[in-house]
Amino acid sequence: MAHASDRYYVPHGSPWPIVGSVALLLLMFGIASTLNGAAIGKISMLAGAAVLLFMLFGWFGIVIKESVDGFYNQQVDRSFRMGMAWFIASEVMFFAAFFGALFYARQLSLPWLGGEGNNFFTNFLLWSGFENEWPSNGPAEIGGDFKAMGPWGLPAMNTAILLTSGVTITIAHHALRAGNRGMLTLFLGLTWVLGFLFVGLQGYEYAHAYHDIADGGLSLRLDSGIYGSTFFMLTGFHGLHVTLGATMLIVIWFRVLKGHFTPDSHFAFEGVAWYWHFVDVVWLGLFIFVYWL
């Protein structure tokens, strides 16, 4: 803590916010162009992703250097923790919206369409003969012919993988508090390997889902009615979060290798570890609500 002072550290003249803005502009321009079939879209998307990566490296590097050089006092540490709490609050709302959509479709709108309660005429006049079942391909088979994703095989295996990674990060956490750097390095390393294994298997599962039933797939796509939409929205955004979490795990793994954390000073580790437990719980919720209940 060579430079720690009673003043709240504020960085001066950082170029990274504007670099980040350029990255997002290129990305969004690329995505919009690609959706409209313009050839330049993919190039712009790749350029945006490259600039974003450059920004992440640069910005993370600066923040880590400031932390190691002792610019951050207790008050800055507190503000990081508050920032983390508010970020998680927004994440909870994000996932609550998607889980809420699943709940609404299954518990409310499908029973209504099926004529439950005082909705006899909804069913009789709109979709006569429609029965409330889950998984549903909707009234008039709007979702087409598909098979639902079963819980055995890859989903169960992926759950086991994520839970194992939850165990390894917990062992790493105990090792950090006990000052055992060897165990910490090993188990934190295992955690991000398991994280990327999960993402790889999820990609494989998606390919299987998207293939036609005739080709041995499930014909299950984003437009396969309310089941397909909620399935891919929930698992897709979760997969994105796992990718993000695993990337952050790698960053702190390198920081562990460099000896940045002590048993009493390791907010970055705690933040990432908590985030990993969070994505793990979201998956468990998905596994239970999408596949079982």
Binding site: F130, E131, E133, W134, P135, S136, N137, G138, P139, A140, E141, G143, F146, K147, A148, G150, P151, W152, G225, Y227, Y291, W292
Partner: peptide, 11 residues
């Protein structure tokens, strides 16, 4: 005691 969802949608 518990059953996962069926494999084929019904509508």
């Amino acid at each position: 005691l518990i059953q996962p969802h069926g494999l084929t949608p019904t509508g």
